[in-house]
Structure formats: structure tokens, C-alpha cells
Design a protein around this nucleic acid. Structure first.
Lengths: 212, 212
DNA sequence: CTCTAATCGATATTTTTTTATCGATTTACA
DNA sequence: TGTAAATCGATAAAAAAATATCGATTAGAG
């Protein structure tokens, strides 16, 4: 018997965080029920698409003429997205971007706890807002001790592959890379590359011709 | 007659930056020709998909038994992605993340020039690495003077909508938001939300069940 | 209490995207 | 120089995702 989450399409899964954000805003505005057509209009989607997506996560069906209970949906989405699962993360590369992630306090609500950063430069070693910054040599030791499964890679492009290899060696199985470089990971490790400059450029292209 | 770029599918366009990164790495390694099957294997895609994608951008066809000329492809991709077009950008919200973007020197190769940052707090106003940080009141003035079309939104969630409105008012037509909030923009403005925490969480979900 | 209007959810259709198949081409090597 | 192996590109098929259609349901107005 397949679990319910397995049936969720990739595309829909990618939209869930946006629904969640929207619903949180509605909840903050005191709205208790919201219809799929309202969501669709506000989020620039089709109402059918919204209904299909919500049907994948909603623990109780929408009520005709009313819509969906906002609070309930928020809980359903958070559970589906795994925000209740606690995970330890680390930052590799304590430059400006890395340090921004190290002290960012917005991860907690998503079950992610950034426990440390690592850097190859002794000048960066120390701590920031109570979060330790270690030399790269200690990555494996600390990551294993703290059971770190998630790594945020924020090193310069030329250092990316080496740092990534070290993360894999340290037992990290999910890597989010902001390094401007192509990096290779072995099977079993999930890598996502966030190419900030490329994202900006594609955004411009999208604006230029109205919808990628 | 439709322009050639109009035929490029959304999904393919999103893969282009990854190809570019890969090819740059190959070029740096001294490789001059690369076949679609090699690319596919390294990037965990199907060879057919790679060939179809490359056919969309390649200015000269691939050669049987050799593959594609790496240098040529790099140029083709950069042109398709619009990296030759110069655009002025600004950062709104000069916190840690915003300041990281302000001084990041990796945008240049993508035709993006971050000319200034803005912040509501007078404590942040000044300059960083020669890049000015202005008070929010001057956003419209500066953005219009510098012809800023692209904005990077890095304010706290509760300030996001107001800051976004100010950006739209200032004539900015493409916004990349890192603010953890739902923000609404009028038609004609392209908004993309990068939800870092959500990205991390989805990465974990992906790793957890092997492929989103 | 009844009727209306709006919404839901299921099924069907269309569109988009990915993958498969296959002949044509051509480089490298014997 | 001829042959073989590997690649390309085009066409076709399959899969995935978005969109349309429609009867069932129900809150709320009259």
C-alpha cells in the first residue's frame, strides 16, 4: 500500500509552500474560510489546479459555498511538507552569505536547526550569535556528533567541489548549494543548486517575454 | 513569425543554467567537445532530453561521434539566457542577507549590476564596498535615476508587502523576494519568491523519498 | 421553509513535457 | 580506404500536468 504522499506530483509539491504562505497571511488577516477560486485569483493559478492540489493534502474536504478551513489547511500543509520533523543543518563557507544563513532565525518553524558553520579560513573561526564556526577539518567530527543531515554550501565556486566532497564524507545527505559552480555528488546524496545570478537572469527573461 | 526563443519550454529554460555551469566546468578542464550522453550521465538526465534542450539553443548542430563544441554552446546558452543584457538591480533590506547580495561580485557575469541597497533603518545607511545604502525614502528617486528594473527583496516578513509596494511604485518590474511572507504584486510586475526554509524542507522531503 | 447561487470533487480532455525508437551521418581506426 | 561504432536529429509514443466540464452539495437570502 502506497503512502498518500507518494501520490503527490512534483509540480504540486513545489506549489505547497506558496499555498502555506498565502494561507498564513489570510489567517493573520482573520479569515477562517477561503475558497479555491479566491486562492486561485490571488495566486494567479487556475481554480481547478488549486482544488486538485488541496485535495492532495486536505484532511477534511472543502465545504461547498464556504471553501476550506484556513487553520486546518495550514496544519495539513505543514505536515505534508515535513515541517514537524527536526533536522540539524550546517553551513559550509562562513562568508557573508554563509553567516547570513548561520544567524537567520527563520528556519526554526520549518524544523531546521542550523547548529554550526565551517570555514577553511582561520580568520572566520569563532562564533556568531552563539552559533559556532569551526575550521573545515572538524566538519566530519562535528557533523557526526550532531547528526547533521543537511548542509548549506556557500563557498566560492573554485572551492565548491572539494567542500562538497567533505560534506558527503561527513555523512551529509542533502546539500543546498549556492556556490557558482557545477558540483558532482555520488548517488544517495541529494543536491540542489540555487544559482542566484541565474535566477535573477531568468526572472528578467520571464518579465521580458511575459511568462517563462 | 515567432521568435526562436518563444518556442523554448519553461522546463527546458530552467535547465539551461545547469547546462551552462556544467559546460563551464568542462571547458575549464580542457574539454572541447562533449556528447549529449556524457552530459546526461553527469547531470542525471536522459540523453534525449539533453539533445532536445541543446537543439533549442545550439547555433551549430552537434557532430556525430563527437558531440557539441563546448565553447560554442557556452556562448549560445549565455545569449539565450540574456547574460549579455545589462540590467541595474537594487537590494531592498540591508540586513545580513541583503548586504551579502550587495557586495556579491558574482552577478557581473550575468549582466546584473547591483547599484545600491535601501533600508528603513538609519543605522544601516551608508555604504559597503563602495556600494551605497540609502534610506527607503530615496528608493523611487534613485531607482528612476539609475534605471533600476530588478529588485532583490530581503526584508523581514512583516515589512515585505510595504517594501514591495514601494519597489513597484519606484518602477521596478522584476522582484526576487527572499522575504518569508506572501506578497501581492500588480499585473505587469514579475515576482519570484525564494523561500529558503521551504527549499531546505523540500530538499529533505526529496531526499527522504528519493526524488520529488 | 424553499430556492438560488456558489462551491466542491470527480471525470474527461487538452496541453505540455519527457522518453523511446530509428535511420542518417561521420569520425576514428584497422 | 573501407568498416564499425557512436552520435545526432527527427518522428512517434508515453507520461505528467494543467485545464475544462458537470452533477452533487450546501450556506444563505428571501
Amino acid at each position: 500500500m502506497e503512502s498518500k504522499t507518494a501520490e503527490i506530483s512534483k509540480a504540486a509539491f513545489l506549489r505547497f509552500p506558496a499555498y502555506l504562505r498565502y494561507l498564513q497571511a489570510e489567517a493573520a488577516a482573520g479569515v477562517s474560510y477561503v475558497s479555491s477560486s479566491e486562492i486561485a485569483e490571488d495566486m494567479h493559478l487556475s481554480a481547478v489546479c488549486v482544488r486538485k492540489d488541496l485535495a492532495l493534502v486536505a484532511s477534511e474536504p472543502g465545504k461547498p459555498r464556504l471553501g476550506f478551513a484556513v487553520g486546518k489547511l495550514i496544519g495539513d500543509l505543514e505536515r505534508t511538507l515535513g515541517y514537524h520533523l527536526k533536522t540539524h543543518a550546517c553551513v559550509v563557507g562562513a562568508g557573508r552569505l554563509g553567516r547570513a544563513f548561520l544567524v537567520y532565525d527563520g528556519f526554526e518553524h520549518y524544523g531546521i536547526d542550523v547548529v554550526a558553520a565551517f570555514d577553511i579560513s582561520p580568520a572566520q573561526v569563532g562564533a556568531l550569535h552563539g552559533k559556532p564556526i569551526y575550521p573545515m577539518e572538524r566538519l566530519k567530527e562535528i557533523a557526526e556528533r550532531e547528526e547533521v543531515r543537511l548542509g548549506i554550501l556557500t563557498v566560492p565556486g573554485e572551492a565548491a567541489q572539494k567542500a562538497c566532497d567533505a560534506m558527503v564524507e561527513a555523512g551529509i545527505t542533502s546539500i543546498l548549494s549556492f556556490a557558482p559552480a557545477y558540483v558532482r555528488v555520488p548517488a544517495g546524496v541529494t543536491l540542489r543548486c540555487e544559482d542566484l545570478a541565474a535566477t535573477l537572469a531568468s526572472l528578467l527573461a520571464e518579465a521580458g517575454k511575459g511568462g517563462i
